[in-house]
Design a protein around this nucleic acid. Structure first.
Length: 851
DNA sequence: TGATCCCGCCAACGT
DNA sequence: ACGTTGGCGGGATCA
């Protein structure tokens, strides 16, 4: 550790400066620990260092900072080199990173840039050491990031020092779960209350809690939720949980919950801190605790900001300008009931409906809370809630009030332009074309990745927001649907085959290939790149097959036209792209190889582990319901070679793919070349799978088999199955069913060797596989055989009849929606300055300005 | 100044 | 024992 640290430290910090300044001092190389001499000693190297830095830094620092930032954009990946150069240069101070450059947010950006938002099946292993080293930071910082990512299920711990990257695949699902948990925890009420208090009078810590407060907190108090798991992830997390993973992880989830359940989806850290603290220790709300909480929240907020889930804004009120964060992530609508509460413009309908969608039940099981009242609001609260709701409604309905109602269902979704969430999306969407361009140009992986991210996120946003509408329609919906608007969208959404068919983007020059499969309920989007030749056939086949299977399935084109420049324009993006070290490919391959070898060499248990990993990742992918990007094969290689190799997928290409560990970027240009794949373009296709909770898996298995011919494309069920299995990691290419057309298309030779790891898997495959797989998919990744087994046994996610429609609606709405289009064009620049707006909060008008 | 939040000590944990 | 995690809060920076 020290070894790592030492070098890093030197590089990262301006030790060099110190060195020069304080000649004769202990070797700067001394690791941090040694440094720490008696604190009292003024001459501690540390103190000196600090003093020196502070003294020298101001101007230099700022100057440097600018420079660095600009540099970062293009050279971040090689930060080390840069730093070194600087150091060698006359101005050592330059190296002085400046606080901002070390910010968690920036670091997180770098971190995120390493991995694709929607990784393919492969396992994207994250080695903390490596990451820390490459990013030039102490491992501690990586933990901060990983912890919150973990709270969102974007990563999961695999083993010591090892995490698996899941990307945003599970994000929506996670958010749904979190929202639900938040609701069950009465966070909405708590937030309302605290906000109210703040308005009324300055909330002072100890004095504050009156009965009312106590009541609220009381509820959450015993409910003391722990880490919220995702289906299929529980076990995994469980292992992690044994440890009292208290704060960051959980705090992060809670923080997100607060956003998800509060109506203006805006929160100040103070409010959040108060709630979170209150939850834990009602007794001692001391200042220091509060401060600490806030500090943590800053950490979390920074990461969430990097994920673009929240955004910092400033709320101006009489008292002054207060910093706050607003939710900019996808709109999540967990259940109908809540929607009613939040959105209903008519008198409050009974807040709680007895009929609980299967989905809910599921989630209930998944996220059991201490407080048993999960689904029923305590009567005593009802009044309060109602009154609050009424107030809210008033406020929202105020003519002047901007649509801050994003949280309130469909209204927001219908007004993409106004909706904050949507606003973010357009810019991203606009970038889709850019992606194609880039690819054609044969850009670096990084660039691609970035773009993909954008497009994907955009898609996600789009899809997610619309989701609201469908729900109301859901047959299961307990209460009468009150929203007229729903009808409209629904009609559009009516599942029609036409809608189902995959859409190819017009602007794409040559057929391009990327298909996105979404599970309606989750609105997850998966993007894949593949060579055009391969893609087309596959995508079509799959899509149709799926569709046919589920009459409910819908697909929509998410692509938006936009200026390709957008991507570049966005500083963050460009930066990210640039940051991505090109050389990575060089090093990473080796590492991956090593890893793979190591894995292979490992004893049984270890092997197991590897298997698990593969499963995990693959599972991760599916769980969300999404699906199986046809192209995945291709780029799958890049990621976890070790696993892949085992799998035998793309074995033929193996050699060629030495790509980076991160597997960050799907098919590299080089890789493609190796494969003899012509330049590829990306055609975004969105396919919504039937919302039925059954999820992709069931659909695939059943539908494929049964209705294979129904779709225009005759995809033999077996092929689908194989495909699925492979993705899941249950089977290897070699093992796959002979009749897999897809594979044939791909011309991917199956490799016998790969089979080895599949022994277990094989078993699974045979027989129950189809069913089980589906379940697995449904539940999310599994990380162990045990888990797998367990998972199989778990009940499938409940079907949500309503979902399909919703999906459809979403589909249509966002992407193609007229509103959207306009908004998109407007925001093509990629940044969201649009967010300036006014928002009404109880009794006062607040101006929200973006930072 | 107050808002931010980097930094890294050090204890809990895992192996 | 030693390495990994990550709680925690001092105090440096930023605005």
């Amino acid at each position: 550790r020290n070894m790592l640290k030492t070098p890093l430290k030197q590089m990262a910090t301006s030790h060099s400066v110190l060195t020069e300044i304080q000649s004769g001092c202990q070797p700067l190389t001394t690791p941090p620990k040694p440094r720490k001499t008696p604190p009292a000693d003024p001459w501690t190297p540390t103190s000196n260092l600090k003093m020196l830095i502070s003294a020298a830094s101001p101007e230099i620092r700022s100057r440097e900072q600018r420079r660095e930032l600009s540099n970062n954009a293009s050279e971040v990946p090689q930060a080390k080199h840069c730093l070194q150069e600087h150091l060698s240069g006359d101005e050592c101070e330059k190296s002085q990173p400046s606080r901002k450059e070390k910010s968690l947010g920036l670091l997180c950006h770098k971190f995120l840039a390493r991995y694709p938002d929607y990784p393919s099946t492969e396992n994207n292993l994250i080695c903390l050491d490596e990451v820390a080293e490459e990013l030039n930071v102490e491992r501690r910082r990586i933990y901060d990031i990983v912890n919150v990512l973990e709270s969102l299920h974007m990563v999961s711990r695999l083993a010591k020092n090892r995490y698996v990257w899941h990307g945003r695949g599970n994000l929506f699902k996670t958010l749904q779960a979190l929202k639900k948990a938040g609701e069950e925890n009465r966070y909405t009420e708590q937030v309302e209350m605290i906000k109210k208090r703040e308005y009324e009078h300055e909330f002072d810590f100890d004095g504050e809690r009156n009965e009312e407060t106590a009541r609220y907190f009381g509820y959450s108090e015993h409910s003391e939720m722990s880490f919220v798991e995702l289906p299929g992830t529980e076990f995994h997390a469980a292992s992690v949980n044994r440890r009292k993973d208290k704060s960051l992880r959980v705090m992060s989830q809670k923080f997100v919950m607060l956003f998800l359940v509060s109506t203006p989806q805006m929160l100040s850290l103070e409010v959040a801190a108060k709630i979170l603290i209150g939850e834990d220790q009602l007794e001692d709300l001391d200042k220091s605790k509060f401060k600490t909480k806030i500090r943590r929240l800053y950490d979390i907020a920074n990461v969430l900001s990097s994920l673009e889930l929240i955004k910092k804004v400033h709320v101006t009120e009489e008292r002054g300008r207060k910093p706050a964060f607003k939710w900019t992530g996808p709109t999540v609508f967990p259940d109908i009931q809540d929607q009613k509460l939040e959105t209903t413009s008519t008198p409050c309908p009974p807040p709680i409906s007895e009929s609980i969608p299967s989905k809910e039940q599921c989630s209930k099981n998944l996220f059991p809370l201490r407080g048993k009242q999960n689904f029923t609001r305590h009567p005593s609260l009802m009044k309060l809630v109602k009154s609050i709701e009424n107030d809210r409604r008033k406020i929202q309905s105020a003519p002047t009030s901007p649509v801050k109602i994003s949280s309130s269902t469909f209204v927001c979704s219908l007004q993409p332009g106004t909706d904050q969430n949507l606003s973010a999306f357009p810019s991203k969407m606009a970038q889709v074309p850019a992606i194609a361009e880039n690819q054609l140009e044969g850009q670096s992986k990084k660039a691609r990745v970035v773009k993909m991210k954008l497009s994907q996120s955009a898609l996600e946003c789009t899809l997610s927001s619309p989701e609201v509408v469908p729900k109301p329609e859901a047959p299961l919906a307990t209460g009468p649907t009150q929203q007229p608007a729903l009808t409209q969208p629904l009609s559009a959404c009516t599942p029609s085959h036409s809608s189902v068919s995959p859409v190819i983007l017009p602007h794409v020059p040559s057929g391009v290939p990327y298909a996105i499969y979404l599970h309606p309920s989750q609105t997850h989007t998966v993007t894949t790149y593949s060579p055009s030749f391969m893609l087309q056939p596959l995508s079509c086949a799959n899509v149709t097959g799926i569709k046919s299977i589920n009459s409910k399935v819908l697909n929509k084109v998410t692509t938006e036209e936009g200026d390709s420049q957008t991507a570049t324009d966005d500083p963050t993006k460009s930066l990210t792209a640039k940051e991505r070290p090109p050389m990575k490919s060089e090093t990473s391959p080796q590492r991956s190889l090593k890893r793979s070898q190591a894995l292979q060499e490992n004893n049984l248990p270890k092997r197991f582990r590897s298997d698990e990993e593969s499963l995990d990742t693959s599972m991760t992918f599916f769980p969300s319901g999404y699906l199986i990007p046809l192209t995945q094969y291709i780029h799958s290689n890049r990621a976890g070679f070790s696993d892949k190799e085992k799998a035998g997928l793309c074995s033929s290409q193996r050699t060629t793919y030495s790509s980076p560990i991160a597997g960050v970027v799907p098919g590299t240009a080089s890789e493609l070349k190796a494969v003899n794949i012509p330049a590829f373009h990306i055609t975004p296709l969105n396919i919504m799978l039937s919302p039925t909770s059954i999820g992709a898996a069931p659909v695939v298995s059943n539908s494929c088999l049964n209705t294979s011919n129904s779709s225009s494309v005759q995809t033999p069920s077996p092929s689908v199955l194989n495909f699925t299995l492979q993705h899941i990691g249950l089977i290897t290419a070699g093992v796959q069913v002979p009749s897999n057309p897809v594979l044939q298309h791909m011309a991917v030779p199956s490799q016998p060797e790969s089979v080895r790891h599949s022994s277990e898997n094989t078993h699974l495959q045979e027989g129950k596989v189809s069913k089980n797989i589906l379940r697995f998919i449904r539940h999310g990744r599994l990380s162990g055989k045990d888990r797998a087994v367990i998972a199989v046994q778990q009940p499938c996610v409940p079907r949500e009849p309503q979902e399909p429609q919703a999906a459809t609606e979403n589909f249509f709405r966002t992407p193609g929606g007229p509103n959207t289009a306009s908004s998109l064009s407007a925001n093509s620049d990629g940044t969201d300055r649009t967010s300036q707006g006014t928002l009404y909060i109880p009794q006062r008008k607040l101006e929200v300005s973006e930072d």
